[in-house]
Design a protein around this nucleic acid. Sequence first.
RNA 1: GGAGGAGUGGCCGAGCGGUCGAAGGCGGCGGUCUUGAAAACCGUUGUGCGAAAGCACCGGGGGUUCGAAUCCCUUCUCCUCCGCCA
Length: 429
Amino acid sequence: MIDPRLLTENPDLLRERLGARSAGAAARLGELEATHLAWKQLKQELDDARHRQGERSQQMKVLRGEEQAALRQELKELSDSLKEKQKLLNELEEKREQLLLFIPNLPQTDVPVGDESCNRRVRAWGTPRSFDFPVAPHWELGARLGILDFERAQRMSGSRFSVLLGAGARLERALVEFMLELHRRAGYIEVSPPLLVKRDAMVGTGQLPNLEADAYKTAGEEPYYLIPTAEVVLVNYHREEILDAAQLPIRYAGATPCFRSEAGSYGRDVRGLIRQHQFTKVEMVQITTPAQSEAALEAITAQAEAILQALELPYQVILLATGDMGFSSARTYDLEVWIPSEDKYREISSCSNCLDFQARRARIRYRAGAEAKPELVHTLNGSGLAVGRTLLALLENGQQPDGSVILPAALRPFLGGAGRLTPAGLEPL
RNA sequence: GGAGGAGUGGCCGAGCGGUCGAAGGCGGCGGUCUUGAAAACCGUUGUGCGAAAGCACCGGGGGUUCGAAUCCCUUCUCCUCCGCCA
């Protein structure tokens, strides 16, 4: 949530920054401003009236007989009008809250303005390998190796599902372990969280109410939501808490399945592992003081890059333009890995600084010192990495003319020393 | 799923329907004393909105009342017992 004080203190800045992101968000501002103003006015009125009520009702316990009856009558009327006003105020507050929840975060000022064509490449690492034989897409490699089964997955679960089998399942497990281990050594605390959360948690990190259509939820009166990313749980873990500045930055890493309905992406990336309803992702989250967050974003990004480098996968770092950023983010770097079969880079990690946007929604604060007032923390998240896409990238980038796949040295300790994937399974090099 | 019990400030814990934002204790902070520390003593110490006056907040929501932490309804969470279960 944006700081509602901006509505009265700096509406021009608000309008300009929201406009940089999308026309729609800026358009909703008018109604929000009007509601906020009406709320403020009524709040003042109600406060004053209540003050009077408090003073007058002190008299009730000293007055007797006629006098008391008269005062009771007077106070009864005051009380009734207060209830009216309170009801109205609640409605205004509710409306303001609803409007605020749909306002996305303000992009930082040095983020390029525009749609995705304005994304800026910050740096690149590694050189895409040149193949002297026709490259196969990962689904063909996977089928030949007997580690990837889309057909049966679709029969039991439908499109956008897959089964990893044998060495494929083991490779996924090794990747998770390899990534978590790297993060653990960098000071991230490993977390194994719930995968089902209450609605409030989804609102807290900004997935809702905006992206309702993309979320899976359980049936029943109070449904659970299936997390679309571990970010939801790693951030909401501290919801409604006041943290100690000495604890910060807090670093968490967790590997979880992620569930996305992918509404609105019909026909895109229908083949292969790129876009699935369920996929495994290792996620990093940092909770920091405002002063720490800028450096923390660079650190999270570097941490995700370290994985790609260790896996010897060529990638580029993209600073997303205002129109391409997620709802809660003020600044996002995407990491894109080289995909030989598509002859281009594809997103494999997204690292965002949400500043105090999520902290305000989830009410996560910290205290700078024993005497200091609580202040909102900053939250950051980054994939490190999307495991399915990593597996896909390893298969394609490591493929050999005979259909086998050479795996990077860094991963071998997690595979019992094996470095080559063949139809027979994992083998030493 | 069934039967009971409990939810009050950072923590523990009191609280008759009327200056209760809430006694007391612990913890924190400041001070006195001390070479220093401990102990003791004194003071101070919640959050939100507001420029301020002030208002709101005793798990959440609703009600009764001139007035609710205190009464009623409802809901959530936790604990105990039974049942079921990986």
